[in-house]
Design a protein around this nucleic acid. Structure first.
Lengths: 138, 138
DNA sequence: GTTTATGTTGACGTTAACGTTAACTTAGGC
DNA sequence: GCCTAAGTTAACGTTAACGTCAACATAAAC
């Protein structure tokens, strides 16, 4: 049970909970917690959870969402956008709205990010200047 | 006391705690909390806090840091980088290290962000496609 | 001089996202 | 058949970032 559970072919790869935990450097508790929140729903073999490639991808999306500062509930909705290409027109329009509002958040975040990077550049320049000054004084 | 406390000239502008709370849409409790954590240190007139332009800028930086997902303790260190242009060579080198590690975080975040934006574009395209399909079926 | 708005300092409450522990099951290795 | 590694559920604990409330001060407005 130290190796990935099974690996019959390329696409039917299957992972245990601790496989994923190791790969993404999180705890199994975290993965189960995400399942509790409706972000994952792996197959079961008896009691044990069995994850496929799609589950793994979802987990990746969750972790990226987290890194971007979204709450788990938001991430859930974003993932739902992801895997439902169907639905009625009304539903689709609603999805588009959700999506655009999330996009706006990211765009604002990008602005913050670029500003902060520029300020880091400024600080660095001033530090370098000061360092040269000090080495000249010596 | 409904107007900004005083406004003698352009640069000596001064704000009350609720001026800032209103401007940035946060509570006074939040501002006091940030002071507790060492992120702000306004003047006092008796008991009351008095904020100047520099305090206001610091608060802005704090809020941007938060939006970028940094913890308050990290933000504190980043701000300290900001207003100490001096110090010894050893200290400056240390600052540069801090700064570069923070920069790396932001660069990784930018990658996540661009990826997510691309995926949003994908989802939108698929939604639009599906909508056209539905309108054609009618 | 008393209401009213704004301010203050504690101190306890809350929420999200897990950590930690306990008590138990299950599948293989020897 | 027993041990160990990995898994399970359930429940309580923890931390950061505030919210909320009490009890009080102060200054302007009437």
């Amino acid at each position: 049970m130290n190796q990935p559970i099974r690996q019959l072919s390329q696409d039917s790869a299957v992972f245990s909970i601790s496989d994923l935990a190791r790969e993404f450097d999180i705890t199994t508790r975290t993965i189960r917690f995400y399942e509790d929140k409706g972000l994952l729903s792996p197959q079961r073999s008896g009691q044990k959870r069995i994850y496929n490639r799609s589950d793994r991808t979802r987990l990746k999306l969750v972790l990226r969402g987290k890194r971007l500062g979204f709450a788990l509930a938001d991430i859930r909705r974003m993932i739902e956008l992801y895997d439902e290409p169907g639905g009625e027109a009304k539903q689709l329009t609603l999805m588009l709205g959700q999506l655009n509002s999330n996009r706006q958040l990211l765009l604002m975040q990008r602005e913050d990010l670029e500003l902060q990077l520029k300020e880091f550049d400024d600080i660095e320049l001033r530090c370098q200047k000061r360092l040269k000054q000090l080495s000249n004084d010596a």
